[in-house]
Design a protein around this nucleic acid. Structure first.
Lengths: 246, 246
DNA sequence: TCATAATAATGTCTAAACGCCACTAAATCG
DNA sequence: CGATTTAGTGGCGTTTAGACATTATTATGA
C-alpha cells in the first residue's frame, strides 16, 4: 500500500483499514509477608492457554470511556475491588508479541493493599499473587514477563524519590513498614533517619494519632496519605486530557 | 455482551471484535533562534481538515514491525530524516478524542537539530515549525494541544536531571548553547558553574578538540555526545521493550 | 600596540542535604 | 524491676549545590 492510499483509507474508509488488536494490561502489585507480589491470571483459552498472564483484556468500546476504565474494569473483575493507585506504564506494540495479529497493549502499574482483595481472590482458582522470584519458574503468556520487569523497575525508581509505594500498604501504616517496603523495592537497606527526613519534607502523610503495638517494643505511629495525594487524584487529571478543540 | 462472551471473542473471533483505531503521534521538537519549536502538519483531509496536527498516522501492519517503526516512518515522510532521539511519551485513548471512533494514539517525544531537516521542510507548504506561544492562536486537531503540552512538560523534567535536550542541537555544540536551551526549557536562569558541574559528572559528553568563535570573546569548546549515550541506543533497548535512560 | 569589551571557564565560600551512628523513648517479657 | 525490643531523635562530618568573584582567551578600536 502506498502512502497516499494509506492516507486515503485513514480518513474515509475505516473498515478497510486493518488495525492492530488493542488490549490493556494492568500490573497490579501488593506487599505481603515482606515480599512484593504481582497478580497473575491463568489463561483459560488460547493463545498461550494454561499459561499465566496479566489481568488485562480488550477495550470494550460500548462500556469503557477511557483506557483507564478498561484497566479498572479488568481489575475489578479479577479482584472485586478497584485499586487506589493506577498509572500508565508504557505501551508495547509490535508484529510478533501476539500470534494472532499485530498487537498493541497499553500497560498500567497499579497498587493495592493485600487485605483489600484477599477474600475475593481466595474464592477463585485461576487468580493468584506471585512473588517475583517465582516468576522465573512460571510459564508466562506473551511478553508479560518483560512488562512486569518494566513495571518493577519503574516502581523501584519511584521508591527513590516518592512515597507512591505506600499505596501497596493498608490505608493506615507505620513508617517502619513503609521503609521496609522501600528496602524490598530497592534491594538495599536504608538509613532510618534519612528515610524519615525525606518523608517529612514531602508532607504527604498525616499522623492518625493512633499507634500500632508490635508484640514487643515501642509502638509505631500510624500514618495515612493526605487527601491531596490520595486515591484517584490522577483520574481527575486524566479526565481533562481528552478535550479536543481548544 | 457478558464477560464470557467477550473472553470468547477475544481469543477466537478477531473479526467480530470491534477495535479502536490506532495511531502513532510523534511530537518532534527542535531548538532554533533561541526558541523551542514543534513540528506541525496541516491536515489535508477530514476529520479536522485544514487544522494543524502532529506528524503521525496509522500503524502499517505490513511494513511497520514496531510502534517505533511507525513513528520513525512518519517523521521521515515529513522531514526527510530520522531523529537521533525518540522516546515513548504516553498513550491517549478514549471514546471522544476522534469523531470517527473510539481512538488510541501512542505518542512519542522526538528531538532533532533544526538544520537537519530545514532544507526538506522548506520545500513543502503543509509542514512547519511552530513556537509554543504560537500554538494558542493555531487551530489544533484532536487533542494534539494537550499532547504537546505533556511532551513539553516531560522535556522540561528531563532538563532538570539529564542532557537529553542536547539532541535538539547539532551534533557538535557548546556548553553555553546547551545551557541556554535548558534555560528556555526550564524558564529560569541557571548558574553556569552548577550547570557545568552536573554535565561533567554525567560524563556523557566528549570534547571534540574544536572551538567555536563567536563574533567576539573567548571561543567555546565544542562537545558531542559520547557513543554510549548516542543516537539509537534507545532503539536497541526498545526492541527488547526497554526503558530509555535512568 | 595595547587597553577595553565580550564571552568562556574556573575558584572558592557558604548553606543545605545526606549518610552515619549513637542516643533517648516507650512498650513487653521474665 | 531490669533486660530486651522496637520506635524515634540528636548531632556530627561529608558531600552537593548555589552564589558570585576571578582568571582566560578572543575580537575591537582608539
Amino acid at each position: 500500500m502506498t502512502n497516499d492510499e494509506q492516507d486515503y483509507l485513514e480518513h474515509y474508509d475505516k473498515q478497510a483499514y486493518d488495525a492492530p488488536i488493542v488490549t490493556v494490561d494492568p500490573v497490579l502489585f501488593t506487599y505481603h509477608e515482606e515480599q512484593l507480589k504481582v497478580l497473575l491470571v491463568q489463561r483459560s483459552r488460547p493463545p498461550d492457554q494454561q499459561m499465566w498472564g496479566l489481568p488485562g483484556g480488550f477495550v470494550d468500546l460500548k462500556n469503557d470511556a477511557t483506557l483507564e476504565d478498561t484497566a479498572l474494569r479488568k481489575l475489578r473483575e479479577k479482584t472485586g475491588v478497584v485499586p487506589p493507585y493506577l498509572e500508565q506504564l508504557q505501551t508495547f506494540g509490535n508484529a510478533w508479541r501476539d500470534k494472532r495479529s499485530w498487537s498493541v497493549t497499553v500497560c498500567y502499574t497499579a497498587l493495592i493493599a493485600h487485605q483489600e482483595c484477599a477474600a475475593h481472590i481466595a474464592t477463585v482458582a485461576d487468580v493468584r499473587w506471585v512473588t517475583l522470584p517465582e516468576l522465573a519458574s512460571l510459564p508466562l503468556a506473551f511478553d508479560h514477563g518483560t512488562i512486569i520487569q518494566q513495571a518493577r523497575e519503574r516502581l523501584r525508581q519511584k521508591a527513590l524519590y516518592s512515597i507512591v509505594p505506600a499505596y501497596a500498604l493498608p490505608e493506615k501504616f507505620t513508617l517502619p513498614e513503609l521503609q521496609q517496603l522501600h528496602e524490598v523495592l530497592l534491594e538495599m537497606p536504608l538509613q532510618k533517619k534519612s528515610f524519615r527526613r525525606r518523608i517529612e519534607q514531602a508532607e504527604l502523610l498525616e499522623d492518625t494519632g493512633e499507634k500500632r503495638a508490635e508484640s514487643s517494643g515501642r509502638p509505631a505511629t500510624l500514618y495515612r496519605m493526605k487527601a491531596e495525594s490520595g486515591a484517584y487524584t490522577f483520574l481527575r487529571n486524566l479526565s481533562g486530557a481528552g478535550d479536543a478543540e481548544a
